[in-house]
Amino acid sequence: MRMTLNTAQHRTLAATAALLLGDLALWGATGFHLLTKQQLPVEMTDDLLGTSYIVWKDVFMVGLDIAGPAAAVIVTLGVVLLRVLRTRP
């Protein structure tokens, strides 16, 4: 059975794909982390004492814990919209 998509469904499909790609790009751009990082370590040195210490810098690096559920929500919404927007006989 071949399914033909109407204009609204085409737009929905394109929007879903774009959002999915955006989600993947955001996850990839911050390093494909499993968990979302809120802080990054920055090593500092004390030349006088010859010691080093870590200062934590605030960041927001999306991990799979956020990107994964976001992708699931996007796909679910896309499928529901495709179904709702189908051309009824």
């Binding site: 968990l35 979302t36 990082k37 809120q38 802080q39 990054l40 370590p41 934590w56 991990g63 814990d65």
Partner: peptide, 8 residues
């Protein structure tokens, strides 16, 4: 103790 990820 901290690792940069609050949940962890």
């Amino acid at each position: 103790m901290k690792t940069g990820i609050d949940m962890r």
